[in-house]
């Protein structure tokens, strides 16, 4: 693996390797939540935050506990537990100390545990053998990229409400087509940087 500058990975994760538009991760909540700009912005923030936190935890756990004991095959279980635990912990801390943010993000936090993007980022950073800084940059970049995509889609969907859509395509169908068009637009970025 060529040593990549963390900054390069950060940019690549936002634009060229966008979590939704090129890796299809986090689609479930993407389609369900992207109805309004405000809620999708909230969810995006929460996802970015959890991504940054869990990538650090999972990186440390994987390299300092699982690898020395040859327990790599347990990584799925460990990652999902650490994500669930992190989300719980954040929820409790926020409720106690920053209630404003808690009420803003509150309902989204439990949803995040089952968001494929979180587990996906943790798995990708292991498979691609990123260093600590690279993993962190990748996680934050992915979060920002995800937020950007979902907010953009929410904006488009708000306009779509007034459009007439063929009967069978209403709802999820047209959302997927819009996402496809966005993905095509993002291919245009692929010249900037490329990570595999």
């Amino acid at each position: 693996m060529i040593e990549l500058n963390p900054m390069v990975i950060f940019i690549a994760a936002i634009f060229t390797n966008n979590m939704i538009l090129s890796n299809f991760l986090g689609m479930c909540s993407f389609v369900a939540v992207s109805k309004e700009i405000n809620t999708s912005l909230g969810l995006g923030q929460a996802v970015t935050f959890v991504l940054a936190g869990t990538s650090i935890i999972n990186y440390l756990v994987y390299h300092y506990i699982l690898v020395p004991f040859n327990l790599e095959f347990l990584r799925f279980i460990i990652f999902i537990i650490s994500i669930a635990a992190f989300v719980q912990l954040i929820e409790m801390i926020m409720e106690k100390y920053i209630p404003n943010l808690y009420y803003a993000l509150g309902i989204f936090l439990p949803l995040i545990t089952v968001n494929c993007a979180i587990l996906g980022v943790s798995l990708f950073m292991i498979i691609r053998e990123y260093s600590f800084l690279q993993s962190f940059a990748f996680a934050v970049g992915s979060g920002i990229g995800w937020t950007m995509a979902i907010v953009a889609l929410a904006g488009i969907r708000q306009r779509l409400k007034r459009a007439t859509v063929p009967k069978g395509l209403e709802g999820p169908g047209i959302t997927l087509i819009v996402t496809g068009l966005m993905a095509m637009a993002f291919i245009g970025f692929s010249g900037i940087v490329q990570i595999q």
Binding site: S22, G168, P172, G173, I174, L176, I177, G180, A183
Partner: peptide
Amino acid sequence: MPPSAFFLLAIVIWITH
């Protein structure tokens, strides 16, 4: 490339609906 997956799934949904 990724976009075609979105389009095809949308078409599948359209037809089945």
